[in-house]
Structure formats: C-alpha cells, structure tokens
C-alpha cells in the first residue's frame, strides 16, 4: 500500500516536471547556453587556454572609449528621460489637468516607448537633420543656423535627445502607478501637522518615491545601453558606442581576436545585469508602499 502510493506520487512528480521541459529546453538552447558560451569564451584565448588577458585588453583605449561614450549616452538619456518623464507623470496624476490628457498621455506612452529602432532615427533626421523641419524653421524665421552652433545630430548630444523619445514615455509608464500610490491621507496628515508643501515633498513623498525613481532610471539606463538599431541608422558607424563596436566585431573581427569579442559582450551583460538587479531590488522596496 505504502509503496504503491509512493510510486504513484513519484510518477505524478515526474509528469509534473515533464510539463515544463519544452520551455526549459527552449530557454537553454536559445537564451542561456548561447550567453554562457560567450561568457566562458571570454576567459579563454584563441588557443583554448584559460586566461584573464581578455579582461585586461578590455581596458585598452579604443574599447574603453566605446564603453565610456555608451555609458555617457545612456546616463544622459536616462536622467533626461527620468526628469521630463517624472514631471509629465506628476502633471497628469497630481497637477489637476483634465483626465483626457492623462489617458491620451498614457496611450501615447505605450506606443512611443515601443517606437524605437531604425524609424526613430529617420524621424529625428527629418526633424533636426541638416534639412529637417526644425532646422529649416529656425533658419527661415529666426535667422538662426542650428548647425553653426556646433550642433550635430550624429553625435553624443544628438543620440541622447533621440533616445529620450522612448525614454520619457517609459518613465511615464513606470512612474504613474507609483504616483497614484501616494495616499491623500498622507498629504492631509502633513498639512494638519503644519508642514509646508516643500516639507511634505521632502519628508514624505521623496522617501517613499525614491526607490521607484532610482529603479526606473536604472531601467532606462539599461534600456539605452543595449540599444543599437537607432544609433546604427542615425550615425552609421561614426559614433563608436559598445553595441556598434560589437556589431563590427561580429561582422568582421575588427578586434582581431574572437575571444576579445566575447569579453566585450560579457562587459555589456555585466553592466545591464547590475542595473537590472538593482532595479528589481529597488522595485521590491517601492512595492511596499503601493499596497
């Protein structure tokens, strides 16, 4: 009796686990093993010997400058996106604007946060490129030549403002629920206790909101860091950010060392991985207040 029931349980357990085998096989074959292959490969030389040389070589000037410009573009577009996104979310949640503005902003944000890649580059070329609408408008109406100021869309600054087109909506989508979570009672309580608006924001809102704010900014950072299509279509290969360098390496081994290419990929995973882990940790902190 006992043996029969245990074997029944065992069989059931086996069937239970069989149910997720297809998913696990897929995830291993097309997500985990390919990534691990690169990570492991980063610690070997082309002859197949274990080495840390690839890590050391990542700190050569050309690769370091690629990481540096990638980090700068990602930080700048994340901070810019976070700032404008925060004010927009604040305006529709607490600013007392009509509710149709809130629903259209959220709908639009859903679209715009997914509108990235090559077409986004085209949109900004048509707007701020040498013959773009805004460039020509400023020249004809104000006699102001944008490009004489040293502005160039195919640059750090140009890429940053282009990325902000999908960063701002993403921030709006993440922050709106967080701002909705601010309870009216907290504001009333602080007013009754004689707090000014500034004190309420600094001593009540900010301590509650900072995990959401920081977390969302990190997510924006990782989002920009991994993006390649927009930059590729906008600047060709002229702006040497990490994904474009990796693209060139995959296409033609420009670093003359396949294993150094793996190390370049590992560097990207480490940077996006750390920012995502911090994001998940901060989000779990933020959710405590949203219940």
């Amino acid at each position: 009796m006992t043996t029969a029931s245990t074997s029944f349980i065992d069989r059931r357990t086996v069937i239970d686990w069989l149910g997720i085998v297809p998913f696990m096989v897929f995830a291993l074959a097309f997500l985990i093993v390919p990534t691990l292959y690169l990570i492991v490969g980063a610690f070997f030389n082309p002859a197949g010997e274990f080495t840390f040389q690839n890590m050391v070589d990542l700190f050569s000037p050309s690769i370091l400058s690629a990481y540096w410009i990638s980090i700068r573009v990602s930080v700048a577009s994340a901070l810019g996106g976070a700032l404008i996104g925060f004010f927009l979310a604040w305006a529709v949640v607490l600013g007392g604007v009509p509710s149709w503005i809130r629903s259209s902003l959220l709908t639009f944000s859903g679209v715009a946060s997914n509108f990235a890649g090559v077409p986004l580059a085209f949109a900004f070329l048509a707007t701020l490129g040498r013959t773009g609408l805004v460039t020509i408008f400023m020249r004809d109406w104000f006699g102001f030549n944008l490009y004489s100021t040293g502005f160039n869309l195919l640059s750090f600054f140009g890429l940053t403002i282009t990325y902000m087109f999908f960063q701002i909506p993403l921030m709006v989508l993440i922050l709106t629920p967080a701002l909705d979570g601010l309870k009216k009672e907290w504001r009333e309580a602080s007013e009754i206790l004689g707090a000014s608006t500034w004190q309420y924001w600094r001593m009540v809102v900010l301590p509650i909101l900072w995990p959401s704010l920081m977390g969302a900014t990190l997510l924006l950072f990782a989002n920009a860091f991994g993006a390649i299509a927009t930059a590729f279509a906008l600047t060709g290969a002229s702006l040497n950010i990490v994904p474009i360098l990796l693209y060139a390496q995959i296409r033609g081994d420009v670093l003359h060392n396949p294993n150094l290419g793996y190390a370049l990929a590992l560097g990207m995973i480490v940077i996006t991985g750390i920012s995502n882990i911090l994001y998940i940790w901060l989000r779990s902190r933020a959710e405590r207040w949203q219940k």
Binding site: W90, G95, L105, V134, M164, F165
Partner: peptide, 28 residues
C-alpha cells in the same frame, strides 16, 4: 501656481513628442 507648472510640463512633453512626428510627416 502648481496648475500652471503642470500645464508647462504637458506642453514640453507635447512638443517633444509631436514635433518629430510632424517633422517626419512633413519631410515625407
């Protein structure tokens, strides 16, 4: 004051979002 500020934020957002779309359409 804070309502005016909210409308300024909406205006900046609207310009940022709409101008590239109008620019693209005009260019096309």
């Amino acid at each position: 004051a804070h309502k005016i500020f909210a409308w300024i934020a909406i205006a900046i957002g609207a310009i940022y979002f709409l101008v590239p779309l109008i620019g693209t359409f005009e260019f096309s």
